[in-house]
């Protein structure tokens, strides 16, 4: 059996006395595209941030290519992170830099590439997400939400990472632009042969970009399986979620006392 690209073993994380992750176990095989679904506050973002090293789990271990990464030093972390690409929910483009420099950022800063050469690659990546070269000279604030997402995607794939993370890639976009982004994600991940881990609550997006789906509920993975099996999961929480029903075992905690 091959080493999983990403492996989470019994990961716990809480803030104050609020438990967010309550023993998450998860494996993502090389080349697989896994989507984690779950309601707001179910711990999806925290899971992602723990893998990226932006948060440190309270207990448990996370492995990337078999290497444990919880508690490693800054230099090791940078080496691991160089395998990663990340598309943030709000794109998180650097608004002090023009679009092309945003895309080329990982190449110039991370890989110390020459600026002219990095710009050439940046424009190639922009073309790959359907943006013309002159968009490269604009500033992030001048772009629409959908275009910012595309630039964010171009930035995530610019360093040709082995693993790409997508945080709610379609949230805040109209359905057509959402589907365009989904198509681009599928295309980019396939072309790079990368492993993808996404979090979303948009089922249309989840079905399109994944080959496996895991559902996170109350800090635990309650179901994981192939995308085409999700309709016959036999798990009432999953059924309620994918059909978007207000009634069911998942009770939204509207008010905590």
């Amino acid at each position: 059996m091959t080493t999983p690209k990403i492996k989470l073993k019994d990961v716990h994380k809480g803030f104050g006395d609020k438990v967010v992750l309550d023993g998450v176990d998860l494996e993502v095989a090389p080349g697989e595209s896994l989507v984690i679904i779950g309601g707001s506050g179910s711990g999806k973002s925290v899971t992602l941030k723990c893998i990226l090293g932006l948060l440190t789990p309270d207990s448990g271990q996370i492995e990337v290519d078999g290497e444990p990464i919880v508690g490693i030093g800054r230099a090791e972390r940078e080496r691991i992170n160089s395998k990663f690409g990340m598309l943030f929910q709000g794109a998180a483009l650097f608004d002090s830099l023009p679009v092309w420099e945003n895309v080329a950022f990982g190449l110039i800063q991370g890989e110390r590439m020459d600026r002219a050469q990095a710009k050439e690659i940046a424009l190639e990546k922009l073309a790959a997400v359907g943006l013309e070269a002159d968009v490269g000279e604009l500033w992030p604030a001048e772009l629409s939400g959908g275009m910012q997402k595309r630039v964010g995607l171009a930035r995530a794939i610019a360093t040709e990472p082995e693993i790409i993370f997508f945080d709610e890639p379609t949230t805040g976009l109209d359905p057509i632009m959402g589907d365009i982004i989904n198509d681009l994600i599928v295309k980019c991940v396939r072309e790079l042969g990368a492993t993808a881990l996404s979090i979303t609550h948009d089922m249309a997006s989840a079905r399109k970009i994944s080959d496996h789906i895991a559902m996170l509920y109350k800090g635990k993975i309650i179901w994981i399986g192939k995308t085409e099996e999700i309709d016959s999961s036999g798990e009432p929480h999953v059924d309620q979620f994918i059909h978007g029903r207000a009634e069911g075992p998942i009770q939204m905690e509207l008010r905590r006392l």
Partner: peptide, 8 residues
């Protein structure tokens, strides 16, 4: 956070 993920 984006800076961190870009190894900066």
């Amino acid at each position: 956070d984006a800076l961190d993920t870009l190894s900066t």
